[in-house]
Amino acid sequence: MSKKRVTSFDVAKRAGVSRSVVSAVLNDTPGIGVGADTREAVLEAIRELNYHVDAGARSMKTGRSMTLAAYGDTRHPLFIRLLEGMQRECELGGYHILLCSPRPKGNAGGRAELLELYHQRKIDGIVTLDHTSYRDEEWASRVSAAGVPYVSVEGYAEVPGVQSVLADYSGSVETAMNYLMRESTAQQPGPVYAEVYHEGEADNWAERNRREAYTSWCTSRGMEPVIVRLEEHGGAWADCLQRLTVGSGQPSAPLLVNWSSAIPDLYRAAHKLGLRIGADLRIMAADNTIQGDRLSLPSLSCVEIPYVSMGEEAVRCLLAQMSGGNGNKAGHQAGKIWLPAVLRAGESA
């Protein structure tokens, strides 16, 4: 037979107080003063009886499940870093995280289930990690109609009315260029921007922002922008590096690459050409996707998209929505919060 469940009534009886006092201790209820001795008596009774709060009953009373849904692919390293930030902020607010993964087909990619969880009062809000070109207006409309507190990380950058936490890709390129060219001389060729793309991948706002920021940086300093496009794992790095190498005794053009995931192929090509990274060829990445600064030798100089901070900010936005705010800060575009990238200085530049 199952053991009888301990209730707040049992705790109140053991501590010699009313149930309202037990509730005040458990929930830090404002306006109800509880003396130190009384509080300790309640806590002692809780320990002795091994009492646990009934989450279902608390949810019915407060209307909160104290759980937030995090939607993304757990096989993706960026989602894991986002979760790290969400967990930090959730712990501060007493919230838990429910992981929800995309479905291969149907059910709106698995998102429809999120709305069901909200209607069942199993979650209080939703954070999704989206690709930078994501802008499903049907999903946004359903979320709005349901009144669900919602934040997209990286999605809906160009869609008003949807709360997004975004990386400042323009600022990341400017930071990278300032560092890459910090010791440039009159003899130093202008920097080259290598835009690596996946086969069949469409252009998106993040890549456009990076490209435009590079072009603006060069033209504002009287340098000619040089942009080369390479398919990921396409084997064209050797030709690209040979174009950068002016000749013996002459400095090579510094190279800014959009993705750190391209760095292993680039390093291999440089090794085959006898080019020393950081000496004969200065390289930097504008997006430390795979944390290449830790995985490459010589260590990679890069700017890192702050996914941990973006996870923290997403939770803060949700809590602000739940409390009646819009989650925005002064100076931010309505509905959009932009976070700066972080410089990681290495040996490659």
Rank of each mutant, 00 (worst) to 15 (best):
residue 216 S to I: 07
residue 217 W to G: 00
residue 220 S to R: 15
residue 220 S to E: 15
residue 221 R to H: 15
residue 223 M to L: 14
residue 225 P to C: 12
residue 226 V to W: 10
residue 229 R to C: 10
residue 230 L to W: 04
residue 231 E to C: 15
residue 234 G to D: 02
residue 235 G to P: 04
residue 236 A to C: 13
residue 237 W to G: 02
residue 240 C to R: 03
residue 243 R to E: 14
residue 244 L to N: 05
residue 245 T to C: 14
residue 245 T to K: 14
residue 246 V to T: 15
residue 247 G to H: 09
residue 248 S to K: 14
residue 250 Q to L: 15
residue 250 Q to Y: 13
residue 251 P to S: 10
residue 252 S to R: 06
residue 253 A to E: 07
residue 255 L to I: 01
residue 255 L to V: 06
residue 256 L to V: 07
residue 257 V to L: 09
residue 261 S to W: 09
residue 262 A to V: 10
residue 262 A to N: 08
residue 262 A to E: 06
residue 264 P to D: 04
residue 266 L to C: 10
residue 267 Y to T: 05
residue 268 R to Q: 15
residue 268 R to V: 11
residue 269 A to H: 02
residue 269 A to D: 10
residue 270 A to H: 06
residue 272 K to Y: 11
residue 272 K to T: 01
residue 274 G to I: 02
residue 274 G to Y: 12
residue 274 G to H: 10
residue 275 L to I: 01
residue 275 L to C: 06
residue 275 L to W: 00
residue 275 L to G: 04
residue 276 R to W: 04
residue 277 I to W: 06
residue 277 I to E: 05
residue 279 A to M: 13
residue 279 A to C: 09
residue 283 I to R: 01
residue 286 A to S: 12
residue 286 A to I: 06
residue 290 I to S: 08
residue 294 R to M: 07
residue 297 L to E: 13
residue 298 P to C: 04
residue 299 S to M: 07
residue 300 L to W: 08
residue 300 L to A: 05
residue 304 E to D: 12
residue 308 V to F: 09
residue 308 V to R: 04
residue 310 M to H: 08
residue 310 M to I: 00
residue 311 G to D: 01
residue 313 E to M: 15
residue 315 V to I: 12
residue 316 R to D: 12
residue 316 R to M: 14
residue 318 L to T: 02
residue 320 A to M: 12
residue 320 A to T: 11
residue 320 A to G: 15
